[in-house]
Each structure stands twice: as structure tokens, then as C-alpha cells.
Design a protein around this nucleic acid. Structure first.
Lengths: 190, 190
DNA sequence: TGAAAAAGTGACTAGTCAGTCATTTTACTG
DNA sequence: CAGTAAAATGACTGACTAGTCACTTTTTCA
């Protein structure tokens, strides 16, 4: 991975976060990366390709963090908790990158190819949700609905933690509270 | 309210939904509204003012729908259910407008003044959340966290209903299920 | 009816954009 | 060193942008 490529991606993350996608021209990115405008297009054939690369880079960072010490062969609940905690901790430790990732996800700027590629690499996360469903942990709720609830609730838990600037033990407690609220809500009754 | 003003707002809603904000120029909006480019700027001093007007128009539509037959003096739970159901039903009946509203909310394109103005007009919705908090309905959860959860969960409930194309009795049942899940999750224990 | 006001028009301006390409600089090889 | 390939450069292009303004058409009302 070339040095200039990394510089360009980091400059893009920085400017997108500070100014938003739409106020960030390729010229500004090049300048910020201390590189000529043409050089950007030596590394990325188009602005869209650069955005894809930024998206994939950030997703890769999350995945790597979540997979650190991941209990591959542990109990379902243990794996779920690991993902929940690590995903949230990465987000809280990297709020700028997390926000950018969320914005990119909703923006239509990332190509379907890039999204597909990353969903493949994050498959292990979706698997645990499916596994829990098979074990009947969700009661009568439809699977698709539960998936959406889990995702939204994790996002909300993260957003609150970032807004409150939680860290350390307070963060741990909040994440636990968030998870409890979720399970209490979607858990099978009785 | 002038006819051309309405045409321009509707054309903007239409193009923003179809093409996104950033691929929609004032020239295209004018053309779509069958009006000259200059006419747009007779009605709105700038593109931003037009976007504000679109935002306020959509919010007004939601508010009017929610306030229809609103049980102003009813029990807290009755009022909450009314808001929950009507907000969601508007969204499901107007998915394009709902999506645009959500996107605008996250986009930084709407001026703070417009946001403030609308929050004032939607104050009655926030009040019920606060009232429920005072009655201790949320148990040990912090108020700010509960507010975010309620909002996110309503959004999720709506998104699932739209994705599944629910309507009629199926929609009613789904909304009830969504509300139950929420209360089961955030409700005070014991 | 006629004159003044209001509403509507679209060619135009000044500026921005993504992307190109002829040229220069750097890195490598023998 | 020389010779060559690869990398980097930045002035430039054509397409597009929000917004303007001198002008035309329509509406109003005495």
C-alpha cells in the first residue's frame, strides 16, 4: 500500500468529516494530502473510487478491532457481547470516523460493489444474529424486524455514549445497560 | 400561498427524492416546475431558503396529520399511542416524503432557524416523552437515552413497515408490536 | 381604456467542478 | 555515469453551478 495512497485517504477522511462530502473537491483533497491534483487520479480512477476506498478502509478498521480476541468458538451470547462491546468501543474511541462511516452508509456515494464486498467481510456479525434467531431468542418477532432493531439500538447506544463523552467504567456500564434494554425488549417472553 | 410557490416546492420534493439533493440544480427544479429560472428566485431568495421551505412544508404535513383527532385531554398512554400510530401511519402512507424528511434532517442543509421553528410546533410530541419520564415510566434509564431510543425505535418500526409494504390490519398489528417491544425494553422493571 | 405595478422570463455571469495530459522529476538498472 | 521507465505535476478544459438583471407579459384598478 503506497504512502501517497494512504495520505490521500486520510486527507479525504479529514476533509469529509470537517466540511462534508459536498464541499470537498478533489482539488482540496489533493492539496490537503500535499499532492498534485493529477496524482490523485493516478491512484484512484475517479472521485467515486476514492470514496469507495475510504469506506472500505474505515470498515476494515472496525472489523479488525472487533475481530481482536474474538471468541470464535465461544458461546453465542459471549460472541454477541464481544461484537456489541467492541463495535461500540471502536465507535466511541473514533467518533469522527464512526460518524463519517454512518454518513457514507446513508449517502448513496458508495458503490454497491463496495457495499457487497464489505458485507461479505462482516458476515460473521450477521451470522450471530441469525444464530440467535434459530435458537428462538427473539420470540414472535420477525427476523428482519429484529435485525433492524438490533442495528438501530446499537447505533443509539453509541450515539448517546459519544454525546455524553462516556469512557472507562461509565462507558462499560452504559453499553451493558444498552444491551440489557435491547434484550429486555426483543427477548422472548416467558 | 401562491400556486407557483407550491409548484416549486413539489418539484423540489420530487427531484430531491429521485436524484438526491446534490444532483438537483435550481435550473432543473425550475424546469420541472415549468417555471423560468428567475422565477424560483422571486419566491425564494436562495436555494437554501427553498430547502427550508420544503422541510417546513413536510413537517407541517406530519404535524397536521398527527394532530387530527389528537386526544389533547386524554390519558398519557392514550396520547402516546395516538402520536406513535399517526406518525407511523403518515410515514407509511407517504414513504417518499418521509425518506426525504429523514435525509434532510441528517443533511446540514436545513437552517437552524427552520429546525428551531419546527421543534416549537412539534413541542407537544416532546412533552409526552417528558411527562412519561416524570411519572417514572422509564425506570433507571437516563432521560436523554430514552428519548433517543424512542425516536430510533419508531424510525425502525416505520422502516420495517415500509420495506414490507404493510397496510391495513397488518400495519396496525405491526405498529402495536413495535410499541410493545419498546415498552418492554425501556419500561421500569418490577 | 390606459397606465402603473407585479409577476414572470431566460440569456448571462462569475465561479466551481471532476478529470486530462504534455511535461518534468524521480527511481532504477546496467 | 547514461538511458529508460515510472511517478508526479499543475495548467488547462468543458460541463455545470447558483444567482442576476434588463426586459416582457399579465394583472390590477381608477
Amino acid at each position: 500500500m503506497s504512502d501517497k495512497r494512504t495520505q490521500l485517504i486520510e486527507a479525504t477522511v479529514d476533509l469529509f468529516s470537517k466540511e462534508g462530502f459536498w464541499n470537498t473537491s478533489t482539488a482540496r483533497i489533493s492539496k490537503h494530502a500535499q499532492v498534485a491534483t493529477g496524482t490523485l487520479f493516478n491512484y484512484f480512477p475517479s472521485k467515486e473510487a476514492l470514496i469507495d476506498a475510504v469506506y472500505l478502509q474505515l470498515k476494515k478498521e472496525v472489523r479488525d478491532f472487533v475481530l481482536e480476541a474474538y471468541p470464535e468458538r465461544g458461546e453465542l451470547r459471549e460472541r454477541m457481547d464481544h461484537i456489541w462491546d467492541h463495535y461500540a468501543m471502536w465507535a466511541v474511541a473514533n467518533p469522527v470516523r464512526y460518524r463519517l462511516l454512518e454518513q457514507l452508509r446513508l449517502s448513496d456515494l458508495v458503490s454497491q460493489a463496495a457495499i457487497d464486498k464489505m458485507e461479505e467481510e462482516l458476515a460473521f456479525m450477521f451470522e450471530v444474529v441469525g444464530e440467535a434467531h434459530k435458537q428462538g431468542l427473539y420470540g414472535k418477532l420477525p427476523f428482519g424486524f429484529v435485525s433492524m432493531i438490533i442495528h438501530a439500538h446499537l447505533e443509539t447506544t453509541i450515539n448517546y455514549a459519544i454525546a455524553q463523552g462516556l469512557s472507562g467504567r461509565k462507558l462499560k456500564n452504559h453499553l451493558k445497560l444498552g444491551a440489557e434494554t435491547l434484550w429486555q425488549g426483543i427477548g422472548a417472553k416467558g
